[in-house]
Write a protein that binds this DNA or RNA. Sequence first.
DNA 1: AATATCCGCAACCGCTCCGAC
DNA 2: CGTCGGAGCGGTTGCGGATAT
Length: 336
Amino acid sequence: MGRPPCCDKTNVKRGLWTPEEDAKILAYVANHGIGNWTAVPKKAGLNRCGKSCRLRYTNYLRPDLKHDSFTPEEEELIITLHGAIGSRWSCIAKRLPGRTDNDVKNYWNTKLRKKLMKMGIDPVTHKPVSQVISDLGNISSLTNTNSQNNLILDHTKDEQVQPLQHQVQYHQFTNQENFQQHVLSEVASSSSSSSSSNLTRLNSPISYSCNTSQAQINSNFDWSDFLHNDEPLVWTDIQQIQQCDIQRVMSSLTLSGIMQNEGEISNNFNSNGDDKQGGSSEGFEDVACDASKEYQGHKKCEGNSFSGNSFVDGILDKDSEIRATFPEILDASFDY
DNA sequence: AATATCCGCAACCGCTCCGAC
DNA sequence: CGTCGGAGCGGTTGCGGATAT
């Protein structure tokens, strides 16, 4: 037995709102302020569910809302935050002044998800599709290996037989320490976690520190602090996110063997990390460009600031490399 | 011009969270 | 401590305009 409905659904109007209804809500809010939405329909003279009134106001009528299209900067930030925290739309929307969670969610579902998929990047994991396939292959082989090991009790391979979910997750973390912190936090929160968010939590660490052994910029940055802070987003926040995210991915590239000269990358980050002033994204661009050069060797680094194109190129090149190495994945159909 | 299909967005639904009592 | 109910969240639906055939 669930909760009783908040109102008599059969006797309230549904569907699109008329300008007259909007005017009534706006007039009501202007006179009484926001609060007690269940009482709003009666007091405002509306034949609507209170919840519907709240949604209409918060998602459309609020005076501080922007109704123009998303800017490239907002787009970039949504992708970055989604990669870090998953589909916590309200958290993401808090970082985008004038945007609602519904706006962000719709924009993601209709535009950004498709855009990433076109680029060959899995919108759920934010990794190249071929790497996702590769991971799935690893899961399959690990499962087989694991069961085989169990059968023959070959304990010499114990190190390779890590818990499956953790094997898959590990590459998302900048180093083992952060990964372990995440695992510990998962264990700690497992008793109180809600059922609906388990998948998101697995794919998206709630928070992690950026202090890696390879680079020490933004060592105090923490997603959790950042996302619980209600202050409006400022440019330095964006830079922090970009640097943190780039650093995280750079580290994983280094770990996976794409980047060879770890020290040089680290130097780039360190020199960049000191520059936290000014309204430029040069630092981010430089790091992305340098890293891309590092990997690509011959490719010219170009593109507008904040685009990160060269970095995406790096990921996609790796994607091509994997596809070339395992051509059979091109023929394989799969669902995920 | 008519119809089919696609796409974006507003709105709804079901659920959890959290504070008041 | 348990219950109630308002608020908020994420996922999904469906309408209506745009575009393709």
